[in-house]
Design a protein around this nucleic acid. Structure first.
Lengths: 418, 418
DNA sequence: CACCATATGTTTATCGGACGAACAAATCCG
DNA sequence: CGGATTTGTTCGTCCGATAAACATATGGTG
């Protein structure tokens, strides 16, 4: 089958399937269910356990499991487990490094390529620094290709299956296509990134995903905290804040990315937190970015824009009043913006990522203060402001995760090939 | 079967069904699909047309249609249509006044009961005025009962099927139960409204729905504009603003109500539009309500709070500067709040309802001005600020619609009874 | 008007896939 | 060692969609 870009970003879209359900869809769905059960279970489940959890017959589950095993997506473990009477079950788990996805993160100052297996283990990754502002897409593709080729060769050589490739780009994506609609910092405008990559021989015949970096990072965080807590990602809802040059946002509602009509949702950086505030690059006034963006904070703290994060932290630790005020202002405006979002969406969790992740300890109290006074439902449901867990690796991981989410959503396409 | 409150509010929840798919579910799904095809089609479709649209066999569709006809949900029309060669098809349409839902709207100053059939036609409705602030739930139930009984008797006497009852309440709903969590104006706290109603003999054995009034109105508007444009409600996304004593909001994303984790989403009235603004009843400062709520506008316009809307409109038409300023301020703060919401959700349509609906002509320009400068994506996708189409009837219609949405989402439960 | 082309709706046989029950396998317990 | 218990597989059954043939009802054309 040819290159496919089924969805431009995000995990399985809520299947309020307007499409008809043929008998095969039934299989697809249950296959997806079983695979998800294996991948998201706290510990490797047996066939019997899956059967009980899902309400399917053991016979049915067995059949589906066989298909997934044949596809190298899952495998059996030794039946070491002993826990009472009865024949011990065979625990099932994701294969390690046998079914992998490649994630590519394009940033303004670096490009990272990483390989993640279906179980979420990062196999290998590699970063190359550079200046990609106002870059030529073809040059970027070249860099990606060169960076990825050895990794791909290596993985293929070991007999692993390549499930697909996911891309994270700092800009707006055209949903359902492999096209970058607009990436201000890269200075890209309607670049069909996927097509450019897919034309290369080694990149043929793959599944492709493309996503906005904030969205992709949010997906990765959703995954990380689900596995960390040993719980399925299903019911998680949170707002993800991605601090960078600007401030991006993204919403995970019940484990699903809320993409919006065009895939441009989450522009929390341009939420108005003070109509009398300073003008923003977007043309409006008082946008959050102007208070809590990287440049804004550094400027308010009296630092040079070329300074690095450690300088800011040093100033904070030294008790520098300007730095402290800068952070407090950022925190309270972040709090206002997040309170607005929470009131709108009824979500009780916020995850702070990007460069703000490191500042989380300094920001948290200030943010929470605003949340507790402004969120209407805060008296009934506690609110949490957490730091991301993935640091700079969120985007690469997430990009690969986009692919894996597609596999989970419908494993059928990945069955036939041995 | 006993009284059921399958979902507390809203239309079919996105079925990212974590639950297993048995063979029966397949039937359910396709039944739902066929029913939806009949109900949402611009003009009555034939079996063959449905078959082509959905990709199901004519045989399959025929079978499903038979079930739906037997359940009195749809019926055949005379094959009058002549449009080319071939055997003329039999057009299918919703039955009129043979399958109906009852909608109940509880407001602070009135209670309305209305009956709507599955095709969306309003059969009859009735309103009683009263003061239900700080009301006794039991008394309200009594009023509802007395108001509804003759309507129900009448409908049943004509041999129509009662599909269920939907309730609209100005407050927070406990999702998945029939309980009103908190309704400040009614002064209700954890009132199990559905149980109280269902205990009455005539109300036995029904399907029940319960929803927040803004949510319910939004559902009704979604439906109204879908049928008005002769298009299925599927892909519609908009933000609904419900002006009342306060300002409620609600989001319809791709035809689906976005309820949030607890069902408390849409609190756009407490979005901060000016951190230095006046204190709000919620404890924060600068909430939208304090600028664009009914009381705020009347106060700013120099009117008495007991005045009615016509007084405000008269002042506006007379060119009264205070009134004009009040409206302009309301519009720009509404614009700020809506821009925030739109940036977050990537929706390109806003529907203004409640008492603001009438003021729409005076507000629109001011709102749009803010939107066009503040919404990042406005240069690519045009934004629309529309008035609701249903006026005061939105809530009753929507309440009944909650039930009908459930029927559409899974008609199985309504098949057996002749 | 006969006849064919075209489209709709129904009938029939077939097949895919889940289910239930029975059975073999592997453990624990007494 | 034999019963109890749980797991995984095998086999017949049943439900529901599919495909193909057929009956039905038009329009068009010589």
């Amino acid at each position: 089958m040819p290159n496919r870009v089924d969805r431009a970003a995000g995990p399985a879209r809520p299947t309020t399937a307007r499409t008809a359900v043929r008998q095969a869809s039934l299989r697809e769905h249950n296959l997806s269910l079983v695979l998800r059960a294996v991948l998201e279970s706290p510990q490797p489940p047996t066939r019997a356990r899956i059967s009980a959890d899902l309400g399917l017959t053991r016979a049915t589950v067995s059949g589906l499991v066989d298909l997934l095993i044949e596809a190298q997506l899952i495998e059996e473990l030794a039946p070491v487990v002993v826990r009472g009477a009865g024949r011990p079950g065979v625990p099932l788990t994701a294969t390690t490094a046998r079914a992998v996805a490649i994630g590519v993160e394009v940033q303004v100052d670096q490009i990272t390529v990483g390989i993640t297996d279906i179980g979420g283990r990062s196999i290998v990754d590699q970063t190359v620094a550079g200046n990609f502002r106002h870059s030529d897409p073809a040059a970027v593709v070249e860099v990606v290709h060169n960076l990825a080729t050895p990794l791909l060769d290596n993985v293929r050589h070991k007999g692993a299956r390549l499930l697909g490739a996911g891309f994270s780009v700092p800009g707006l994506i055209r949903r359902g296509s492999g096209e970058v609609r607009f990436a201000p910092n890269l200075h890209w405008d309607s670049v069909d990134l996927i097509r450019m990559i897919a034309d290369r021989p080694q990149w043929n015949d793959l599944h492709y995903c493309l996503g906005n970096d904030a969205d992709v990072s949010a997906v990765a965080e959703s995954w990380a905290r689900a596995t960390a807590r040993g719980r399925p990602t299903t019911s998680e809802s949170f707002i993800y804040l991605s601090g960078g040059v600007g401030i991006g946002g993204s919403m995970i509602i019940q484990g699903q990315l809320l993409e919006g009509q065009h895939g441009w949702s989450g522009e929390i950086g341009h939420m108005c937190v003070d109509p009398a505030g300073p003008p923003c690059t977007c043309g409006a006034r008082g946008c959050l970015e102007q208070f809590a963006g990287r440049d804004a904070i550094f400027r308010a703290a009296g630092l040079d824009l070329t300074d690095e994060l450690p300088a800011l932290i040093a100033a904070l630790e030294a008790g520098d009043p300007a730095a402290r005020t800068a952070i407090d202002n950022a925190a309270s405006t972040l709090g206002i913006a997040l309170a607005n979002a929470i009131n709108l969406l009824d979500v009780d969790r916020v995850v702070i990522g990007g460069f703000l992740e490191v500042l989380h300890p300094y920001l948290r109290r200030g943010i929470e203060r605003e949340l507790f006074t402004r969120v209407v439902a805060s008296r009934w449901s506690p609110l949490l402001v957490e730091a991301g867990q993935l640091g700079g690796r969120a985007s690469v991981t997430g990009a690969a995760r986009l692919v894996i989410d597609q596999v989970i959503a419908d494993p059928t396409g990945w069955l036939s090939a041995s």
